[in-house]
Amino acid sequence: MKKKYTYPVVLTIAGFDGSGGAGIQGDTNTINALGCYPTSVLTALPVQNTGGVKAIHSIPPEIVALQLQTILEDIRPDAIKIGMVHTQELVAVIAAILQQYPDIPVVFDPVMVATSGHRLIEPATIDKIVSELFPLATLITPNLDEAAVLTGNAITNVAEMYRAGAMIMQKGCRHLLLKGGHLPTNELTSLLWDRQGVIVTYTSEKIMTNNMHGSGCTLSAAIAGYLALGENLSDAVSLAQQYVHRAIAEGADVAIGKGNGPLNHFFEPQQRVKKEKPRYNNEASPK
């Protein structure tokens, strides 16, 4: 039978989460739930549960590079999500390969601080991320803890979010989604920036639950998923935030683990989407 169709593919480049809510597990749950097809590259093996991270085992950079090259030569992604990249060597190999594919949108969640508050990245890696990965990313999605790391300033209100966003945009970003979920307010505010300033402000009611493990991973994976489905950036961000809000709400009363529990990614799973197979046979070719 002639193969006429393919699926919207999202490649996630991220760390492992044995407790299932974040990292590659959270990403693949999200991508599957949106009707897309997930592929993955493992960057690290954190030893963690819902209570926090106990250790991090690094995957050798040459193995990460081989994983990435092997996937890209066979299955062309329609969008890429990057999560945990915690060493300078990993930044270098990922950037070197992805810069060969400038037509594929990239959503980068600069994972620096876990939901539990555990710091996941060495300070020396931050400059490398800013100089090599920020320019490649279509969108970066830091939370307020990560924005504080990037700016050196604590962020305690929406006015400070605007100042922090302006500072981060000066670091070479194309688009920035600054997430305000950590503010002590009943309303969640997030700001989407381009190089001219804030272009969209998103607000929603905050759900009071500690089942937030992997919420940042889920949001960035969902944005990549909606981009793969053909949405423009602002609509992809809006739809992804609606998806995460529902996933938190539907999992808020569920006990998984003793700490920060996961979202309910499959509250309303979509059938996997079929689309016409492109003429280039869905094989990634460096530009």
Rank of each mutant, 00 (worst) to 15 (best):
G52F: 05
A96L: 11
V64Y: 00
G52H: 00
Q69I: 10
I59H: 01
P46Y: 05
A33K: 00
Q88T: 13
D103V: 14
A44W: 03
S40V: 13
G51Y: 01
I56Y: 02
P38K: 04
I82L: 15
C36S: 13
T43E: 10
P60F: 04
P60D: 04
V47E: 13
Y101R: 03
V47L: 12
G52M: 03
V93K: 06
A44K: 02
Q100V: 09
D78N: 15
L68E: 05
I80G: 02
E73I: 07
A33Q: 03
S40D: 06
E62H: 11
P105N: 08
Q67N: 07
A96H: 13
Q67C: 03
N49Q: 11
P61M: 05
Q88E: 15
K81Q: 07
Q99M: 14
P77R: 06
L42H: 10
Q69T: 12
P46M: 05
P105D: 07
Y101D: 01
A95T: 14
T39M: 09
T87N: 02
Q99R: 15
V93R: 04
A44M: 05
H86Q: 11
L98A: 05
V91Y: 14
P46L: 04
I71V: 12
I80N: 03
D78E: 14
D74A: 15
L45V: 07
L34Q: 01
V91C: 14
V64I: 15
A79M: 00
P77E: 06
G51W: 00
Q88P: 05
N49H: 09
F108C: 13
E62K: 10
F108M: 13
I94C: 11
C36R: 06
